[in-house]
Design a protein around this nucleic acid. Structure first.
Lengths: 249, 249
DNA sequence: CGCTACTTTGATATTTTTCAATCTTGGTGG
DNA sequence: CCACCAAGATTGAAAAATATCAAAGTAGCG
């Protein structure tokens, strides 16, 4: 199993003009009393001053697992994958990341996953050392981050449940529904799901072989739940049954 | 598949004397610059005033999935399981929780998992509505929570990787190692792993049948990696090979 | 227009799930 | 103190589904 990387880490793309849009994070409500704390203008200002805005090409490795963690990243545009390469040669994708998502949380000062751009990406890069101070001085801003992290925790738990399914078709259905819901804040038509990642990325995410993903795709098409318009766009034909299958574990 | 519950939610055990020990949370370092922000004396004081200390019997249901989230919990002693019952009748255990662990994070004001005590448990119960204010006024305290939540996020990701394994023995080995590491802050001998939960709990956690867990246990014993001293205590016979197997995915 | 990477399809092998029955263990009560 | 009971755990045999190995088909890109 090969996982070639077209560009090495360490060198980042050129800086993008900071004017286009200020940093923003998306999160669902997470505690009973806290409803998705959106960033205030002042908070965005704070972050904008800290963050460098970068534009990166596709397939660029941002950082590697176990390397020293220096920055936190927030995606503005594009898609990123976070993954681990396992001793067996297999790869497990921990998450696909889209606009509004944060990544780069570390442990013992080192990143836990490798990350690589899938599409061209625009993102904000925030030095970790300054972030601690900011959080200490701006509790509300930190709260927004806390909400985001808890949201990601829930998604990780949901994914663990999805992966635990035995049937490939059900896993794929769950993936599609999760992806659609995750993208809903960006996409307009909920029955069109853009699949920016490859089949083998999906396989690595769902802990299936890419052959199994391919067969599951065929099966979902045969059952008239979805239709592939090209390899990177799924049209949902029967939303009700797709969701039913996704929830049927 | 039956999952009977001996006691219903809503009624909590009697309050325990608050003097025994103040609330504490355990977390690993999570950001490059932040090393496991332990609670200061003042912060413990703050929490102690907010929290009710409760003692609960074993097998008590604390709250059910989708019920309105009113409290956050911190375990002082004992073990709790967080789970979801799926439409198919299967059960997925999202996490086993031990002293120092926090649980009760919610979404849209509702709990995402059901939780039930496994052993007798002593815990702190903190009203969620007051917590938001506390976090806003005490950024350092919030930072400790943020660290804890990110730590749980990492554990969820690790579990997702463990569950994605195909081989039952490997999954069980991974579970044992994770459990041992999680308990290391409490337990002294790293080669004695107390298994407070039942085989079927382990099965629900690993997304295996309990038969498969049983067979995997037998296999690990046959291979002289572990030895069961009774059903609730595992002695690690060959730490090196056990860890190798756990990491061999 | 042709190459290369990605995807699909096919046949076999491996492993878990299922379904069933038996065995243990801890607790209860006579 | 011992026998009995029930829940939990183990073992066995067959069925189901994905992994594997192999080969052919597409599609995008230069």
């Amino acid at each position: 199993m090969e996982h070639a990387v077209s560009q090495k880490a360490g060198v980042f793309g050129y800086a993008a003009p900071a004017s286009e849009s200020a940093p923003s994070i998306h999160a669902r409500p997470y505690l009973g009393a806290i409803d998705g704390p959106a960033l205030t203008g002042a908070q965005r200002e704070t972050l904008t001053q800290l963050a460098a805005r970068l534009r990166l090409p596709p397939r660029m490795l941002l950082y590697e697992e176990q390397s020293p963690a220096r920055w936190l990243f927030m995606i503005s545009q594009g898609a990123v994958k976070a993954f681990q390469d396992l001793p067996s040669g297999k790869r497990r994708i921990a998450a696909f990341l889209f606009p509004g998502d944060i990544f780069g949380l570390a442990e013992h000062g080192r990143y836990l996953n490798s990350t690589q751009t899938i599409t061209p990406v625009t993102l904000y890069r925030i030095p970790l050392d300054t972030l601690t101070d900011v959080f200490t001085h701006d509790a509300a801003l930190q709260l927004a981050f806390l909400g985001k992290v808890t949201h990601e925790l829930r998604e990780a738990q949901r994914r663990a449940i999805a992966v635990s399914r035995r049937d490939a078709a059900g896993r794929l259905a769950m993936f599609l529904v999760m992806l659609r819901d995750h993208l809903r804040r960006v996409e307009v038509d909920p029955d069109e799901i853009p699949l920016v990642m490859s089949r083998s990325d999906i396989a690595d995410f769902l802990a299936l072989t890419l052959e199994a993903v391919s067969r599951a795709s065929t099966e979902l098409e045969r059952r008239r739940l979805i239709h592939f318009e090209g390899r990177h766009l799924v049209r949902v034909l029967d939303r009700r049954r797709l969701e039913k299958l996704a929830a049927s574990l």
